[in-house]
Computed example of a mutant assay.
Amino acid sequence: MTSPNGMTWTSCTSPVASFWKSVTYSDELFVAVAQDAVGETDCVMTSANGKNWKSGTAAANYAWVSVTYGNNMFVAVSETGYDQVMTSPNGENWTSRSAAVAKDWRSVTYSDGKFVAVAGSDGNNDVMTSTDGETLMIVSSGVDALWYSVTFGGRTFVAVAFGGNSQIMTSSDGATWTAQDSPAESKWQSVTFGANMSVAVASDGEDGEFVMNG
């Protein structure tokens, strides 16, 4: 669905019926990725205007759950599979990349010259970074939680967790992370940044939203 203002929405038809999980935008192209395409690799779709879409072929039939754009490259991560990263310079031709560690990769973002991905898996080695999307390096956040979403804003990367002792962590460089207090124990699903604040939403828990200034 599309909207010029976030309030009035119009339904559009996707070229393939699938579990579409994430969408991003470059300078001229929308790209969406899917979790499943009924055993096929039609897990990508692209659009120049957000209304008319065409099917694309993913590097592999994996559970692609997040896609971002930066440094002239689309990068997507998967929660399952062997090579859990794929990259594309144009949103149509994709190349498999080996994740630094096989994990439940849930979210990827780009800013300040760096791709940063987080995983929804227990234990360390739950952050992955890259400057080009192709050479990937694992980072231990030191915060044991099920990280589901990461964004960048206010000169800071912010990640939120679906579960764990600490459900927010921040980093200025994507490599060194610090746990932050959460206002409520909830199943945080997504976080973004705008208007000088980070905003997160949850699927379940004590409260369904929190706002962090700065």
Rank of each mutant, 00 (worst) to 15 (best):
T2L: 05
M7T: 11
S11Y: 07
S14A: 15
P15F: 08
S18M: 10
S18K: 03
E28G: 06
V31C: 00
A34I: 03
Q35R: 07
D36A: 15
T41K: 09
W53Y: 08
W53F: 08
S55A: 14
A60I: 01
S66W: 01
N72D: 15
S88A: 13
G91D: 03
E92P: 01
A99S: 15
W105V: 00
S107T: 06
S107Q: 05
S111L: 12
D112I: 07
S121K: 09
N124R: 08
D126S: 12
D126N: 15
V127Y: 01
V127H: 02
T131E: 13
G133S: 12
T135D: 15
L136H: 01
M137I: 11
S140K: 04
A145R: 04
Y148K: 08
T151N: 08
F152W: 15
G154C: 05
T156D: 06
F157S: 02
F162Y: 13
G163L: 13
M169P: 02
M169G: 03
S171Q: 06
G174W: 01
G174D: 06
A175Y: 05
W177V: 05
W177R: 05
T178A: 15
P183M: 14
A184S: 12
E185K: 09
K187I: 14
W188V: 07
N196W: 12
N196L: 15
A200G: 05
S203T: 09
G205D: 09
E206T: 10
E206G: 02
E206I: 10
V211S: 13
G214V: 07
